[in-house]
Amino acid sequence: MTENDRPVIELKHVHKHFGDLHVLNDISLTVKKGEVVVIIGPSGSGKSTLCRAVNRLETIDSGEILFEGEPLPREGRKLAEMRARIGMVFQSFNLFAHRTVLDNLTIAPCDVLKTSKKEARQEAMRLLERVGVADQANKVPAQLSGGQQQRAAIARALAMHPKAMLFDEPTSALDPEMIGEVLNVMAELAKDGMTMLIVTHEMNFARKVADRVVFMDGGCIVEENTPEAFFGHPKSQRAKDFLSSLTAH
């Protein structure tokens, strides 16, 4: 029980500015082991910035971010080692364009974790199998559909055996018919107990998969609740407005 209550990602009073813009305003958030937390909110509310701050792709002005109980190192080898334990999936996939799909999964384990080539390949094929793109292993990313690329990108992150996964709008760049295949892979991951922090506009997915929903607006966390409570009875006016704006179109 105590094992599962351990916080994996912890933000304490985090502030960040872009010039005059207060993008993160006193953000405190905890994601426990095996928990799936979904962040929603209007465009420009700071969701991506929050997500990227967790592996320090964005620096913060003040406050504290802990991963598995340790503060995020500021730079150098320590930071790289910490990042290697946090998987990240981007809106635009960002698969390495000059490498095959298979290489995309083996290159980081070989370079960073010093896994043997053979072992990395076996693991890579297993993961590609799992996300359903094993038959595309020897193609270049540009030859894959968006949905296949994103599933390969998830597999690439998993190849590092991350302790948590960050998703920044993983389906926003996809054609509608491909969104489902990516969400299915993510739901599987959640079921297998992966700790996940997900920024998404897919409300049905949030309702089904999330343990908790965090609603952000104007750089603040306005509301945080279980999906049932949040979608059933949003407390704040801003959340109500946001939800009704979604159903409006």
Binding site: L57, R77, F93, N94, I107, A108
Partner: peptide, 23 residues
Amino acid sequence: VPKGQREAALSLGYRETRLFYRI
């Protein structure tokens, strides 16, 4: 080279020098 390539590599634990030569 698109910025996302660099960010993806950083998120996988690459450091600057190797990131440059490999990615």
